[in-house]
Design a protein around this nucleic acid. Sequence first.
DNA 1: ATATTAAAGGACCTTTTTATCTTTTATTAT
DNA 2: ATAATAAAAGATAAAAAGGTCCTTTAATAT
Lengths: 153, 153
Amino acid sequence: MLSRASKYAILSTLFLAEHSSETHKISVKVIAESIDVPNPFLAKLFQQLVRGKIISSTKGPNGGFYLTKKNGKRTVLDIIENIDGLSRLNECFLGLSECDGLNPCPVHFIVEPFKNGILGKFRDLSIMEFSKEIIAQGRKLTLKDISTDFEKK
Amino acid sequence: MLSRASKYAILSTLFLAEHSSETHKISVKVIAESIDVPNPFLAKLFQQLVRGKIISSTKGPNGGFYLTKKNGKRTVLDIIENIDGLSRLNECFLGLSECDGLNPCPVHFIVEPFKNGILGKFRDLSIMEFSKEIIAQGRKLTLKDISTDFEKK
DNA sequence: ATATTAAAGGACCTTTTTATCTTTTATTAT
DNA sequence: ATAATAAAAGATAAAAAGGTCCTTTAATAT
Ligand code: FES
Ligand code: FES
């Protein structure tokens, strides 16, 4: 449904929301390691997110990526739109050319409320609001296998 | 979430459920054209479904693919398992390594009931039951753009 | 028996997605 | 000014998914 690229972009942007600021920029390297995403691939994604004004960057020493207040008001849906385009979110679960009530596939009426739920959340909450929710719930958004953390302990 | 291959396989098997029988076998070509799926690609998928005993085939004149009574008792989930494996169905929507309540991603509690709904339907209904539902509702499961049908009219 | 038909099997090709590498450009601390 | 730093840009590569083609095998109608 979402490409890996989108997922990386979402998690990384939420990471910036939580850990960066205009006075504390973060390099791709740090982010890539924190959430366990391939470094140069993430760099590419970030370039595109910067062009889409979803995140911000500055070059040079103490440079890196960060969110401005304005950036924080963008939505997760903006990220998806920027990376994957919106069409992928609206695909029929079984591949029919149209996903709507006109010629619904056998699972359409299970899929539709889910889609609306996800879409609503991605569209109506800003990145910053989204992030606050995550912090409040004490979640760790990393692709690292958390079980390895337990072992290390 | 599902590969295109799985989707093709599901729609094609449901087509067999509706249109084939032990005395009326259908060739890949006919099916591929009916639901608008690439012919040789579908042939490969069917080979695999036959090996998985989800559909049946006979070679030679009047040969083709069909469902036995036993085949009809298999489930859509069997098809998915046979083509994609089950892991793809259980992936976290945002790519976290585990999708469960332990470290749920921000949309986990929207995703989970959906997954359960889909999974339940795919697991608890046999292919034949599934098909009857579709017939009762008068659905057309083809990948063809239906709007072109309107134009042709 | 033979020709015909349609699936099975295996090799191969294309496109898309994911990932990497190298060079250039901008920023800033010294 | 200069060196160091980090992103931008662009070219390339590897992997996965999707799709095609050709030869072999099995079934059957004649
Ligand atoms: S028509 Fe298939 S999910 Fe909507
Ligand atoms: S943890 Fe992300 S969907 Fe379940």
